[in-house]
Design a protein around this nucleic acid. Structure first.
Lengths: 226, 226
DNA sequence: CCAAAAGTGTTGCACCTACACCCATGT
DNA sequence: ACATGGGTGTAGGTGCAACACTTTTGG
Protein backbone atom coordinates (compact mmCIF):
# COMPACT_ATOMS: atom_id res chain seq x y z
CA UNK A 1 0.00 0.00 0.00
CA UNK A 2 2.56 2.48 1.13
CA UNK A 3 6.30 2.18 0.45
CA UNK A 4 8.56 1.58 -2.46
CA UNK A 5 7.01 3.10 -5.52
CA UNK A 6 10.43 3.99 -6.86
CA UNK A 7 11.95 0.53 -6.61
CA UNK A 8 9.56 -1.00 -9.10
CA UNK A 9 11.36 0.35 -12.18
CA UNK A 10 13.55 -2.71 -12.28
CA UNK A 11 10.65 -5.16 -12.49
CA UNK A 12 9.87 -6.19 -16.05
CA UNK A 13 6.77 -7.96 -17.31
CA UNK A 14 7.06 -10.75 -19.86
CA UNK A 15 4.36 -12.82 -21.54
CA UNK A 16 5.00 -16.45 -22.53
CA UNK A 17 2.81 -19.13 -24.03
CA UNK A 18 2.69 -22.91 -23.85
CA UNK A 19 1.38 -23.92 -27.28
CA UNK A 20 0.00 -27.42 -27.64
CA UNK A 21 -0.49 -29.19 -30.96
CA UNK A 22 -0.56 -32.66 -32.47
CA UNK A 23 1.70 -34.42 -34.90
CA UNK A 24 0.84 -37.74 -36.51
CA UNK A 25 3.33 -40.41 -35.63
CA UNK A 26 3.85 -44.10 -36.23
CA UNK A 27 1.92 -45.12 -33.13
CA UNK A 28 -0.92 -42.59 -33.29
CA UNK A 29 -0.51 -38.88 -32.64
CA UNK A 30 1.86 -37.18 -30.26
CA UNK A 31 1.30 -34.02 -28.24
CA UNK A 32 3.92 -31.48 -29.25
CA UNK A 33 4.91 -27.94 -28.36
CA UNK A 34 7.21 -25.40 -30.01
CA UNK A 35 10.25 -24.09 -28.17
CA UNK A 36 12.62 -21.28 -29.01
CA UNK A 37 16.38 -21.48 -28.71
CA UNK A 38 17.62 -18.56 -26.65
CA UNK A 39 19.96 -16.13 -28.38
CA UNK A 40 20.82 -14.04 -25.31
CA UNK A 41 22.74 -14.63 -22.19
CA UNK A 42 20.52 -15.74 -19.40
CA UNK A 43 20.45 -19.42 -20.38
CA UNK A 44 21.99 -18.77 -23.81
CA UNK A 45 21.32 -21.61 -26.31
CA UNK A 46 18.85 -23.37 -24.05
CA UNK A 47 15.28 -24.01 -25.15
CA UNK A 48 12.56 -21.77 -23.76
CA UNK A 49 8.86 -21.03 -24.15
CA UNK A 50 8.03 -18.52 -26.88
CA UNK A 51 7.31 -15.13 -25.43
CA UNK A 52 8.46 -11.56 -25.15
CA UNK A 53 8.15 -8.32 -23.24
CA UNK A 54 4.78 -6.80 -22.66
CA UNK A 55 4.37 -3.60 -24.68
CA UNK A 56 3.27 -0.45 -22.92
CA UNK A 57 0.08 -0.05 -24.95
CA UNK A 58 -0.87 -3.69 -25.29
CA UNK A 59 -3.34 -5.81 -23.32
CA UNK A 60 -2.04 -9.07 -21.87
CA UNK A 61 -4.10 -11.21 -24.24
CA UNK A 62 -2.86 -9.17 -27.18
CA UNK A 63 0.74 -9.64 -26.10
CA UNK A 64 0.22 -13.39 -25.95
CA UNK A 65 -1.32 -13.41 -29.43
CA UNK A 66 1.46 -11.25 -30.82
CA UNK A 67 4.31 -13.35 -29.46
CA UNK A 68 2.50 -16.42 -30.73
CA UNK A 69 2.28 -14.99 -34.22
CA UNK A 70 5.93 -14.01 -34.08
CA UNK A 71 6.94 -17.62 -33.48
CA UNK A 72 4.30 -19.71 -35.23
CA UNK A 73 2.94 -17.14 -37.71
CA UNK A 74 -0.56 -18.41 -36.92
CA UNK A 75 -3.43 -17.68 -34.58
CA UNK A 76 -4.26 -20.37 -32.03
CA UNK A 77 -7.75 -21.85 -31.77
CA UNK A 78 -7.75 -21.38 -28.03
CA UNK A 79 -5.78 -18.95 -25.89
CA UNK A 80 -6.18 -18.66 -22.15
CA UNK A 81 -4.24 -17.24 -19.24
CA UNK A 82 -2.54 -19.96 -17.18
CA UNK A 83 -0.77 -18.42 -14.22
CA UNK A 84 1.64 -15.64 -13.34
CA UNK A 85 5.10 -16.67 -12.22
CA UNK A 86 7.09 -14.13 -10.27
CA UNK A 87 9.56 -15.77 -7.91
CA UNK A 88 12.56 -13.57 -7.24
CA UNK A 89 15.09 -16.23 -8.21
CA UNK A 90 13.46 -17.44 -11.42
CA UNK A 91 15.70 -15.17 -13.47
CA UNK A 92 18.91 -13.19 -12.78
CA UNK A 93 16.98 -9.95 -13.23
CA UNK A 94 13.49 -9.49 -11.82
CA UNK A 95 10.97 -10.73 -14.37
CA UNK A 96 7.26 -11.38 -13.86
CA UNK A 97 5.97 -13.81 -16.49
CA UNK A 98 2.28 -13.86 -17.27
CA UNK A 99 1.95 -17.27 -18.91
CA UNK A 100 -0.77 -18.28 -21.37
CA UNK A 101 -1.54 -21.65 -22.91
CA UNK A 102 -2.86 -22.22 -26.40
CA UNK A 103 -4.06 -24.91 -28.79
CA UNK A 104 -3.06 -24.98 -32.44
CA UNK A 105 -5.01 -26.79 -35.15
CA UNK A 106 -3.02 -29.66 -36.59
CA UNK A 107 -3.51 -28.56 -40.20
CA UNK A 108 -2.11 -25.16 -39.32
CA UNK A 109 0.94 -26.77 -37.78
CA UNK A 110 1.58 -28.84 -40.88
CA UNK A 111 1.23 -25.77 -43.09
CA UNK A 112 3.58 -23.85 -40.85
CA UNK A 113 6.22 -26.54 -40.81
CA UNK A 114 6.17 -26.81 -44.59
CA UNK A 115 6.78 -23.10 -45.07
CA UNK A 116 10.43 -22.17 -45.35
CA UNK A 117 10.24 -18.78 -43.70
CA UNK A 118 9.43 -20.28 -40.35
CA UNK A 119 11.71 -18.85 -37.70
CA UNK A 120 15.00 -20.71 -37.74
CA UNK A 121 15.43 -21.16 -34.01
CA UNK A 122 12.01 -22.69 -33.38
CA UNK A 123 11.64 -26.44 -32.97
CA UNK A 124 8.77 -28.71 -32.01
CA UNK A 125 9.19 -31.19 -29.18
CA UNK A 126 7.21 -34.11 -27.87
CA UNK A 127 5.85 -33.15 -24.45
CA UNK A 128 7.15 -36.49 -23.11
CA UNK A 129 10.65 -35.84 -24.42
CA UNK A 130 11.45 -32.25 -23.61
CA UNK A 131 15.03 -31.01 -23.33
CA UNK A 132 16.19 -29.08 -20.29
CA UNK A 133 14.41 -25.75 -20.40
CA UNK A 134 15.55 -22.26 -19.44
CA UNK A 135 14.37 -20.54 -16.26
CA UNK A 136 11.42 -22.28 -14.54
CA UNK A 137 9.87 -23.24 -17.86
CA UNK A 138 9.91 -26.96 -17.16
CA UNK A 139 7.54 -26.61 -14.23
CA UNK A 140 5.43 -24.16 -16.22
CA UNK A 141 4.96 -26.73 -18.97
CA UNK A 142 4.06 -29.37 -16.39
CA UNK A 143 1.42 -27.12 -14.93
CA UNK A 144 0.03 -26.31 -18.38
CA UNK A 145 -0.20 -30.03 -19.15
CA UNK A 146 -2.05 -30.61 -15.90
CA UNK A 147 -4.49 -27.85 -16.78
CA UNK A 148 -4.99 -29.15 -20.32
CA UNK A 149 -5.70 -32.69 -19.16
CA UNK A 150 -8.01 -31.34 -16.52
CA UNK A 151 -9.98 -29.11 -18.85
CA UNK A 152 -10.34 -31.81 -21.47
CA UNK A 153 -12.48 -33.63 -18.92
CA UNK A 154 -15.27 -31.06 -18.88
CA UNK A 155 -15.08 -29.23 -22.22
CA UNK A 156 -14.51 -29.76 -25.90
CA UNK A 157 -11.41 -27.59 -26.23
CA UNK A 158 -9.44 -30.57 -27.49
CA UNK A 159 -11.27 -30.07 -30.79
CA UNK A 160 -9.07 -26.99 -31.15
CA UNK A 161 -6.21 -29.35 -31.98
CA UNK A 162 -8.06 -30.71 -35.03
CA UNK A 163 -8.93 -29.14 -38.39
CA UNK A 164 -12.28 -27.45 -38.88
CA UNK A 165 -14.15 -30.69 -39.56
CA UNK A 166 -13.43 -34.02 -37.96
CA UNK A 167 -15.00 -37.36 -37.12
CA UNK A 168 -15.82 -38.43 -33.60
CA UNK A 169 -13.16 -41.11 -33.85
CA UNK A 170 -10.52 -38.52 -34.69
CA UNK A 171 -11.66 -36.43 -31.75
CA UNK A 172 -11.56 -39.46 -29.49
CA UNK A 173 -8.01 -40.19 -30.57
CA UNK A 174 -7.05 -36.65 -29.60
CA UNK A 175 -8.54 -37.18 -26.17
CA UNK A 176 -6.69 -40.46 -25.87
CA UNK A 177 -3.42 -38.79 -26.78
CA UNK A 178 -3.93 -35.96 -24.32
CA UNK A 179 -5.14 -38.15 -21.47
CA UNK A 180 -2.79 -41.03 -22.18
CA UNK A 181 -5.44 -43.75 -21.95
CA UNK A 182 -7.99 -45.49 -24.17
CA UNK A 183 -11.62 -44.40 -24.15
CA UNK A 184 -14.69 -46.43 -25.00
CA UNK A 185 -15.86 -45.33 -28.48
CA UNK A 186 -19.57 -45.69 -27.80
CA UNK A 187 -19.53 -43.89 -24.47
CA UNK A 188 -17.33 -41.18 -25.92
CA UNK A 189 -19.85 -40.65 -28.69
CA UNK A 190 -22.76 -40.25 -26.31
CA UNK A 191 -20.84 -37.92 -24.04
CA UNK A 192 -19.85 -35.55 -26.83
CA UNK A 193 -23.04 -35.75 -28.82
CA UNK A 194 -24.69 -34.11 -25.85
CA UNK A 195 -22.20 -31.21 -25.91
CA UNK A 196 -23.62 -27.96 -27.29
CA UNK A 197 -20.34 -26.84 -28.85
CA UNK A 198 -20.26 -29.80 -31.22
CA UNK A 199 -22.48 -29.57 -34.29
CA UNK A 200 -23.03 -32.40 -36.77
CA UNK A 201 -22.58 -31.56 -40.44
CA UNK A 202 -24.16 -33.32 -43.44
CA UNK A 203 -20.79 -34.43 -44.75
CA UNK A 204 -19.14 -37.77 -44.21
CA UNK A 205 -15.56 -38.86 -44.26
CA UNK A 206 -15.22 -41.79 -46.64
CA UNK A 207 -12.40 -44.18 -45.96
CA UNK A 208 -11.72 -47.86 -45.85
CA UNK A 209 -14.95 -48.64 -44.08
CA UNK A 210 -18.35 -47.25 -43.23
CA UNK A 211 -18.32 -43.45 -43.71
CA UNK A 212 -18.22 -41.38 -40.52
CA UNK A 213 -20.19 -38.22 -39.97
CA UNK A 214 -18.12 -35.03 -39.80
CA UNK A 215 -18.55 -32.66 -36.90
CA UNK A 216 -17.65 -29.02 -36.50
CA UNK A 217 -16.60 -27.21 -33.35
CA UNK A 218 -18.87 -24.29 -32.63
CA UNK A 219 -17.12 -21.64 -30.51
CA UNK A 220 -19.87 -20.55 -28.13
CA UNK A 221 -19.80 -16.96 -26.99
CA UNK A 222 -20.59 -18.02 -23.44
CA UNK A 223 -17.45 -18.38 -21.41
CA UNK A 224 -17.70 -20.01 -18.04
CA UNK A 225 -14.02 -19.66 -17.43
CA UNK A 226 -11.76 -16.69 -17.72
CA UNK B 1 10.66 -11.86 -28.39
CA UNK B 2 12.52 -9.05 -30.07
CA UNK B 3 11.57 -5.35 -29.85
CA UNK B 4 10.80 -2.83 -27.17
CA UNK B 5 12.85 -3.67 -24.14
CA UNK B 6 13.16 0.00 -23.29
CA UNK B 7 9.48 0.82 -23.23
CA UNK B 8 8.74 -1.45 -20.31
CA UNK B 9 10.01 0.93 -17.63
CA UNK B 10 6.59 2.53 -17.34
CA UNK B 11 4.79 -0.71 -16.54
CA UNK B 12 4.29 -1.23 -12.82
CA UNK B 13 3.28 -4.43 -11.05
CA UNK B 14 0.74 -4.33 -8.23
CA UNK B 15 -0.60 -7.14 -6.04
CA UNK B 16 -4.16 -7.03 -4.70
CA UNK B 17 -6.20 -9.48 -2.69
CA UNK B 18 -9.89 -10.27 -2.39
CA UNK B 19 -10.28 -11.33 1.25
CA UNK B 20 -13.41 -13.26 2.17
CA UNK B 21 -14.68 -13.66 5.70
CA UNK B 22 -17.90 -14.17 7.63
CA UNK B 23 -19.78 -11.98 10.03
CA UNK B 24 -22.67 -13.22 12.13
CA UNK B 25 -25.84 -11.35 11.38
CA UNK B 26 -29.48 -11.41 12.35
CA UNK B 27 -30.46 -13.83 9.61
CA UNK B 28 -27.45 -16.14 9.71
CA UNK B 29 -23.97 -15.19 8.55
CA UNK B 30 -23.00 -12.84 5.78
CA UNK B 31 -20.02 -13.07 3.44
CA UNK B 32 -17.91 -9.95 3.87
CA UNK B 33 -14.74 -8.47 2.47
CA UNK B 34 -12.52 -5.58 3.56
CA UNK B 35 -12.02 -2.60 1.28
CA UNK B 36 -9.65 0.32 1.54
CA UNK B 37 -10.57 3.91 0.91
CA UNK B 38 -8.16 5.40 -1.60
CA UNK B 39 -6.04 8.30 -0.43
CA UNK B 40 -4.48 9.16 -3.79
CA UNK B 41 -5.73 10.58 -6.96
CA UNK B 42 -6.69 7.89 -9.39
CA UNK B 43 -10.19 7.30 -7.97
CA UNK B 44 -9.48 9.30 -4.79
CA UNK B 45 -11.86 8.44 -1.92
CA UNK B 46 -13.35 5.45 -3.71
CA UNK B 47 -13.21 1.99 -2.19
CA UNK B 48 -10.63 -0.43 -3.58
CA UNK B 49 -9.19 -3.87 -2.92
CA UNK B 50 -6.31 -3.93 -0.45
CA UNK B 51 -3.01 -4.21 -2.23
CA UNK B 52 0.24 -2.50 -3.05
CA UNK B 53 3.24 -2.43 -5.29
CA UNK B 54 5.32 -5.53 -5.70
CA UNK B 55 8.71 -5.14 -4.05
CA UNK B 56 11.81 -5.87 -6.05
CA UNK B 57 13.01 -8.65 -3.78
CA UNK B 58 9.67 -10.18 -2.91
CA UNK B 59 7.87 -13.20 -4.37
CA UNK B 60 4.29 -12.69 -5.56
CA UNK B 61 2.84 -14.80 -2.74
CA UNK B 62 4.89 -12.87 -0.21
CA UNK B 63 3.64 -9.58 -1.58
CA UNK B 64 0.06 -10.76 -1.23
CA UNK B 65 0.68 -11.86 2.36
CA UNK B 66 2.40 -8.61 3.20
CA UNK B 67 -0.34 -6.35 1.86
CA UNK B 68 -2.85 -8.53 3.65
CA UNK B 69 -1.05 -8.08 6.94
CA UNK B 70 -0.83 -4.36 6.32
CA UNK B 71 -4.60 -4.08 6.08
CA UNK B 72 -5.94 -6.84 8.32
CA UNK B 73 -2.93 -7.41 10.57
CA UNK B 74 -3.58 -11.16 10.27
CA UNK B 75 -2.56 -14.10 8.15
CA UNK B 76 -5.27 -15.68 6.02
CA UNK B 77 -6.10 -19.36 6.30
CA UNK B 78 -6.01 -19.74 2.54
CA UNK B 79 -4.22 -17.62 -0.06
CA UNK B 80 -4.25 -18.39 -3.73
CA UNK B 81 -3.52 -16.58 -6.96
CA UNK B 82 -6.70 -15.65 -8.83
CA UNK B 83 -5.83 -14.01 -12.13
CA UNK B 84 -3.66 -11.27 -13.55
CA UNK B 85 -5.42 -8.20 -14.88
CA UNK B 86 -3.52 -6.03 -17.31
CA UNK B 87 -5.81 -4.19 -19.67
CA UNK B 88 -4.31 -0.94 -20.90
CA UNK B 89 -7.29 1.17 -19.87
CA UNK B 90 -7.86 -0.26 -16.40
CA UNK B 91 -5.85 2.58 -14.86
CA UNK B 92 -4.59 5.99 -16.10
CA UNK B 93 -1.01 4.72 -15.84
CA UNK B 94 -0.05 1.23 -16.95
CA UNK B 95 -0.52 -1.15 -14.03
CA UNK B 96 -0.50 -4.95 -14.10
CA UNK B 97 -2.37 -6.34 -11.09
CA UNK B 98 -1.64 -9.86 -9.94
CA UNK B 99 -4.73 -10.59 -7.89
CA UNK B 100 -4.98 -13.14 -5.08
CA UNK B 101 -7.95 -14.29 -3.07
CA UNK B 102 -7.92 -15.29 0.58
CA UNK B 103 -10.07 -16.65 3.37
CA UNK B 104 -9.95 -15.27 6.88
CA UNK B 105 -11.07 -17.18 9.98
CA UNK B 106 -14.10 -15.58 11.57
CA UNK B 107 -12.54 -15.47 15.04
CA UNK B 108 -9.56 -13.59 13.62
CA UNK B 109 -11.87 -11.08 12.00
CA UNK B 110 -13.69 -10.46 15.27
CA UNK B 111 -10.41 -10.02 17.12
CA UNK B 112 -9.21 -7.64 14.45
CA UNK B 113 -12.33 -5.52 14.50
CA UNK B 114 -12.19 -5.22 18.26
CA UNK B 115 -8.64 -3.88 18.21
CA UNK B 116 -8.42 -0.11 18.01
CA UNK B 117 -5.24 0.12 15.98
CA UNK B 118 -6.91 -1.32 12.92
CA UNK B 119 -6.18 0.86 9.90
CA UNK B 120 -8.62 3.74 9.87
CA UNK B 121 -9.52 3.66 6.20
CA UNK B 122 -10.44 -0.03 6.09
CA UNK B 123 -14.07 -1.10 6.18
CA UNK B 124 -15.84 -4.42 5.80
CA UNK B 125 -18.64 -4.76 3.25
CA UNK B 126 -21.26 -7.36 2.52
CA UNK B 127 -20.43 -8.92 -0.86
CA UNK B 128 -24.04 -8.40 -1.89
CA UNK B 129 -23.97 -4.70 -1.02
CA UNK B 130 -20.68 -3.40 -2.32
CA UNK B 131 -20.18 0.30 -3.10
CA UNK B 132 -18.82 1.42 -6.47
CA UNK B 133 -15.21 0.27 -6.59
CA UNK B 134 -12.13 1.90 -8.07
CA UNK B 135 -10.55 0.67 -11.31
CA UNK B 136 -11.87 -2.73 -12.52
CA UNK B 137 -12.17 -4.01 -8.97
CA UNK B 138 -15.89 -4.71 -9.21
CA UNK B 139 -15.40 -7.31 -11.93
CA UNK B 140 -12.40 -8.70 -10.05
CA UNK B 141 -14.55 -9.31 -6.97
CA UNK B 142 -17.22 -10.94 -9.12
CA UNK B 143 -14.67 -13.31 -10.58
CA UNK B 144 -13.27 -14.11 -7.13
CA UNK B 145 -16.78 -14.89 -5.92
CA UNK B 146 -17.33 -17.18 -8.86
CA UNK B 147 -14.09 -18.98 -8.09
CA UNK B 148 -14.91 -19.29 -4.40
CA UNK B 149 -18.36 -20.74 -5.05
CA UNK B 150 -16.87 -23.07 -7.61
CA UNK B 151 -14.09 -24.34 -5.39
CA UNK B 152 -16.39 -24.85 -2.43
CA UNK B 153 -18.04 -27.57 -4.50
CA UNK B 154 -14.99 -29.83 -4.61
CA UNK B 155 -12.90 -28.96 -1.57
CA UNK B 156 -13.16 -28.05 2.08
CA UNK B 157 -11.57 -24.59 1.85
CA UNK B 158 -14.72 -23.04 3.27
CA UNK B 159 -13.55 -24.37 6.63
CA UNK B 160 -10.92 -21.65 6.41
CA UNK B 161 -13.65 -19.17 7.26
CA UNK B 162 -14.31 -20.86 10.61
CA UNK B 163 -12.25 -21.09 13.80
CA UNK B 164 -9.92 -24.00 14.38
CA UNK B 165 -12.66 -26.32 15.61
CA UNK B 166 -16.23 -26.35 14.41
CA UNK B 167 -19.28 -28.56 14.14
CA UNK B 168 -20.55 -29.94 10.86
CA UNK B 169 -23.65 -27.80 11.20
CA UNK B 170 -21.52 -24.66 11.47
CA UNK B 171 -19.58 -25.74 8.40
CA UNK B 172 -22.79 -26.44 6.54
CA UNK B 173 -24.06 -22.96 7.38
CA UNK B 174 -20.88 -21.53 5.89
CA UNK B 175 -21.49 -23.48 2.70
CA UNK B 176 -25.06 -22.28 2.63
CA UNK B 177 -23.95 -18.68 3.03
CA UNK B 178 -21.36 -18.97 0.29
CA UNK B 179 -23.56 -20.86 -2.15
CA UNK B 180 -26.73 -18.97 -1.31
CA UNK B 181 -28.91 -22.06 -0.95
CA UNK B 182 -29.91 -24.60 1.68
CA UNK B 183 -28.18 -27.96 1.87
CA UNK B 184 -29.50 -31.22 3.25
CA UNK B 185 -27.85 -31.74 6.68
CA UNK B 186 -27.60 -35.52 6.42
CA UNK B 187 -26.20 -35.57 2.91
CA UNK B 188 -23.78 -32.78 3.76
CA UNK B 189 -22.51 -34.81 6.68
CA UNK B 190 -21.84 -37.90 4.57
CA UNK B 191 -20.16 -35.90 1.82
CA UNK B 192 -17.73 -34.17 4.16
CA UNK B 193 -17.13 -37.10 6.49
CA UNK B 194 -15.55 -38.78 3.49
CA UNK B 195 -13.17 -35.85 2.96
CA UNK B 196 -9.59 -36.52 4.03
CA UNK B 197 -8.92 -32.95 5.12
CA UNK B 198 -11.58 -33.10 7.83
CA UNK B 199 -10.60 -34.87 11.04
CA UNK B 200 -12.98 -35.61 13.89
CA UNK B 201 -11.83 -34.61 17.36
CA UNK B 202 -12.93 -36.11 20.67
CA UNK B 203 -14.50 -32.86 21.83
CA UNK B 204 -18.12 -31.89 21.56
CA UNK B 205 -19.83 -28.55 21.45
CA UNK B 206 -22.44 -28.43 24.14
CA UNK B 207 -25.36 -26.13 23.51
CA UNK B 208 -29.09 -26.12 23.79
CA UNK B 209 -29.47 -29.65 22.46
CA UNK B 210 -27.57 -32.82 21.78
CA UNK B 211 -23.82 -32.08 21.77
CA UNK B 212 -22.22 -31.98 18.33
CA UNK B 213 -18.84 -33.45 17.55
CA UNK B 214 -16.13 -30.90 16.78
CA UNK B 215 -14.05 -31.26 13.65
CA UNK B 216 -10.72 -29.81 12.70
CA UNK B 217 -9.47 -28.83 9.27
CA UNK B 218 -6.27 -30.65 8.41
CA UNK B 219 -4.25 -28.73 5.83
CA UNK B 220 -2.95 -31.50 3.61
CA UNK B 221 0.43 -30.94 2.04
CA UNK B 222 -0.82 -32.28 -1.27
CA UNK B 223 -1.99 -29.47 -3.51
CA UNK B 224 -3.90 -30.34 -6.60
CA UNK B 225 -4.29 -26.75 -7.57
CA UNK B 226 -1.76 -24.00 -7.86
C1' DC C 1 -19.05 -62.65 -47.86
C1' DC C 2 -15.86 -60.94 -44.63
C1' DA C 3 -13.25 -57.54 -42.03
C1' DA C 4 -13.44 -53.41 -39.72
C1' DA C 5 -15.11 -49.17 -38.36
C1' DA C 6 -19.68 -46.52 -37.40
C1' DG C 7 -23.20 -46.31 -34.51
C1' DT C 8 -27.17 -48.26 -31.04
C1' DG C 9 -28.99 -50.76 -26.94
C1' DT C 10 -28.74 -52.66 -22.44
C1' DT C 11 -27.21 -53.78 -17.98
C1' DG C 12 -25.05 -52.92 -13.68
C1' DC C 13 -22.72 -50.11 -10.47
C1' DA C 14 -21.66 -45.84 -7.96
C1' DC C 15 -23.12 -41.83 -6.39
C1' DC C 16 -26.29 -38.32 -5.13
C1' DT C 17 -30.94 -36.63 -3.35
C1' DA C 18 -34.80 -36.66 -0.69
C1' DC C 19 -36.82 -37.90 3.25
C1' DA C 20 -38.13 -41.05 7.10
C1' DC C 21 -36.49 -42.18 11.25
C1' DC C 22 -33.87 -42.75 15.79
C1' DC C 23 -30.67 -40.43 19.43
C1' DA C 24 -29.20 -37.27 23.01
C1' DT C 25 -29.58 -33.28 25.49
C1' DG C 26 -31.48 -28.70 27.96
C1' DT C 27 -35.49 -26.89 29.70
C1' DA D 1 -42.03 -35.01 28.44
C1' DC D 2 -40.99 -32.62 24.62
C1' DA D 3 -38.80 -29.66 21.48
C1' DT D 4 -34.77 -29.38 18.84
C1' DG D 5 -30.82 -30.18 16.63
C1' DG D 6 -27.42 -34.38 16.02
C1' DG D 7 -26.91 -38.31 13.47
C1' DT D 8 -28.32 -42.96 10.71
C1' DG D 9 -30.91 -45.68 7.23
C1' DT D 10 -32.96 -46.30 2.93
C1' DA D 11 -35.40 -46.00 -1.55
C1' DG D 12 -35.47 -43.74 -6.04
C1' DG D 13 -33.04 -41.40 -9.76
C1' DT D 14 -29.15 -40.08 -12.70
C1' DG D 15 -25.11 -40.79 -15.03
C1' DC D 16 -21.40 -43.28 -16.46
C1' DA D 17 -18.59 -47.71 -17.67
C1' DA D 18 -18.65 -51.97 -19.82
C1' DC D 19 -19.85 -54.64 -23.45
C1' DA D 20 -23.12 -57.05 -26.65
C1' DC D 21 -25.12 -55.95 -30.76
C1' DT D 22 -26.57 -54.01 -35.45
C1' DT D 23 -25.28 -51.16 -39.62
C1' DT D 24 -22.56 -49.79 -43.49
C1' DT D 25 -18.94 -49.57 -46.23
C1' DG D 26 -14.40 -51.45 -49.11
C1' DG D 27 -12.23 -55.25 -50.81
Amino acid sequence: MTSSLGSTDAIRVAVSTVIFSLRSCADGDRLMLPLVRRTRDPHLDMWALPGGWLDLSENLDAAASRTLIETTALKPSHLEQLYTFGDVDRSPTRVISVVYWAMLRSDHVDAHRAVADAPENVEWFDVDALPALAFDHTSIVEYALWRLRNKVGYSTIAAGLLPDEFTLTELREVYETVLGRRLDPSNFRRLLEGAEELVATDSFRTGKHRPARLYRHEALSVQSDR
